[in-house]
Every structure is written in structure tokens, then in C-alpha cells.
């Protein structure tokens, strides 16, 4: 086996190991696990009423989006965000890990630092988001093999991009001291914007949604591709998402050069 192939296999094994470990740790408190999962699914479900009422009241599309289109955005946002926090559940702690010096513990381990940090924790309620997103997709969208494949692809892309955006802004902590609040806000903004029809935003806001808050590349354009498949547009989305993920890795690498150990003594069990 060549060296890069061996590294990729090791990484996949690490991810699967973390996934299994985090899932079993979460399920150790089974009642709490189920309450959190179903509580989150119910929590998300409440917003359907808002959209039902709104579409019922105006009796027309909103800037080219019908009820089903908006539900696609919600299904994608919930499943993509859910997958992101289930797999990369430590992302929201990244700033704290950097400014407390806890990163030392990860630096000493023979695994890629960033992925090791991100994978090492899960957020149990993310399963509720994931469950809700998949259910909403099944209930509100026309079923076809292509549709499913596209939805799963966009869910994975969304999970990667949301994680990457949060990592990117958390890495500002390397340069600014503590960017925790800022990174949290950026993550919330991507999700908040993508839950509304993209065409309602115009001018500078639309530009922002194609750059610093890239909701367009994880939601609006995928929704368009889902409604009417176009391989060229899909390639553009894949390329844009790859750039966002690469930017996060680059930012972390640049930040790591400035990182100074906090002399914190810690261990990971």
C-alpha cells in the first residue's frame, strides 16, 4: 500500500473509531439520549407551522420559492448541521482548546491535529437534527434515486462546509486572542440565512452569502440543482465547497505556526 493510501486508511479508521466511541458514550445515558434526539426533532418541527401559515396566508410563492422548496432548505440544513455536529462535535470548542493551551495534548498524538480535535467529541442532539432532516426530506420531497443521491451528497457537503466555516473563524483565536463569540456567530449566521429563500436577499447581502457566509454554496444553489439537475452547476458547487474546506485547513495551519504552548498539563483518556 502506498504511503498516501495508508494515511487515508488510517484517517478513516480514526474517524470510525471516534464515531463508534462517541455514539456508545452518548447512548450510555439512553433516556437522556432519546429525550435529546426526539426533543431536537420536535424543536425543529415547530418551524414548519410558521411556513405553512405564511404560504397559506399569501397563497403564492415567495420570490420563486414554494413551500416544498423551503422545506428542502430546512431538510438540508437540519441533516447537514446534524451530521456536522455528530461527526465533528468538538468544533464549537476549538477556540477554547486554542486559548487554554489544551491543543498541546492533540499535538503530541501521531494523528492529523485538526481532524483529531474535531472528531474527538460528538453532540448528541445532532442525531435529532439528522433524524428530522431525513424525515422532512422523505415527507416533503418527491422520491427518486437521483434525488436521494443528490440530497445525501449535499448533506455531506453542507456538513463539511459548516464545519469548515466554523473552524475558519475559530482559528482567528490564534491571531486575536479569543474569537469564540465571533466564530459562534458566523456558524449561526450560515444556518440562519440558509433557512430562508435565497432570492429574498439582494445587493451586498447576496454577495456576502456567496463569500464570508457561504449559504449560497451549501443551500440555495444545491436547491436549484435538486429542482433541475445541471452537472455544470454541480461542479461549481463542488469546487466552491472544496475551496472553503481548503481555506479552513490553511487558516488552521497558519494559526498553528503562531501557537504557543500554555504549559497546561492534560491527558486524554
Amino acid at each position: 500500500m502506498s504511503e498516501p493510501t495508508r494515511q487515508r486508511t488510517n484517517l478513516l479508521r480514526l474517524a470510525l473509531h471516534y464515531f463508534r466511541f462517541n455514539l456508545s458514550a452518548g447512548m450510555a445515558y439512553s433516556t437522556s439520549f432519546l429525550i435529546q434526539v426526539f426533543g431536537m426533532a420536535l424543536n425543529n418541527g415547530a418551524f414548519i407551522i410558521f411556513w405553512l401559515v405564511l404560504f397559506d396566508r399569501i397563497g403564492a410563492e415567495i420570490a420563486g420559492y414554494g413551500f416544498t422548496d423551503v422545506m428542502f432548505l430546512w431538510a438540508l440544513a437540519a441533516s447537514g448541521f446534524g451530521l456536522s455536529v455528530v461527526v465533528f462535535g468538538n468544533t464549537h470548542q476549538l477556540s477554547r482548546i486554542i486559548y487554554t493551551g489544551e491543543l498541546d495534548v492533540y499535538l503530541l498524538q501521531p494523528r492529523p491535529v485538526l481532524l483529531n480535535v474535531l472528531l474527538s467529541r460528538t453532540v448528541v442532539s445532532g442525531w435529532g437534527d439528522l433524524l428530522y432532516g431525513l424525515s422532512l426530506f422523505v415527507i416533503t420531497q418527491p422520491m427518486s434515486l437521483t434525488g436521494w443521491l443528490l440530497f445525501l451528497l449535499f448533506t455531506i457537503l453542507m456538513a463539511l462546509v459548516v464545519t469548515a466555516v466554523r473552524v475558519f473563524y475559530h482559528c482567528l483565536t490564534f491571531f486575536l486572542g479569543n474569537a469564540e463569540g465571533f466564530a459562534q456567530l458566523a456558524g449561526e449566521l450560515v444556518i440562519s440565512f440558509m433557512l430562508y429563500p435565497g432570492s429574498i436577499f439582494r445587493g451586498p447581502a447576496a454577495w456576502l452569502l456567496h463569500s464570508l457566509i457561504p449559504a449560497a454554496f451549501v443551500a440555495y444553489i444545491p436547491a436549484r440543482i435538486f429542482a433541475s439537475f445541471d452537472p455544470g452547476t454541480l461542479l461549481i458547487v463542488l469546487a466552491a465547497d472544496a475551496v472553503i474546506v481548503a481555506a479552513a485547513f490553511l487558516m488552521f495551519r497558519l494559526g498553528l505556526r503562531r501557537y504557543e504552548s500554555g504549559n497546561l498539563i492534560g491527558s486524554r483518556m
Binding site: G39, M40, L42, N43, A46, F47, I49
Partner: peptide, 16 residues
Amino acid sequence: EEVMPFWWIVQKLIFV
């Protein structure tokens, strides 16, 4: 053990 889901439900009832 976990009260957060109760908050989610009440909060969403206030939302909707």
C-alpha cells in the same frame, strides 16, 4: 437528567 429538551419545546411553543 436533561431539561434542555423541555426548554426547546417551550421555546418553540413561544415561537409558533
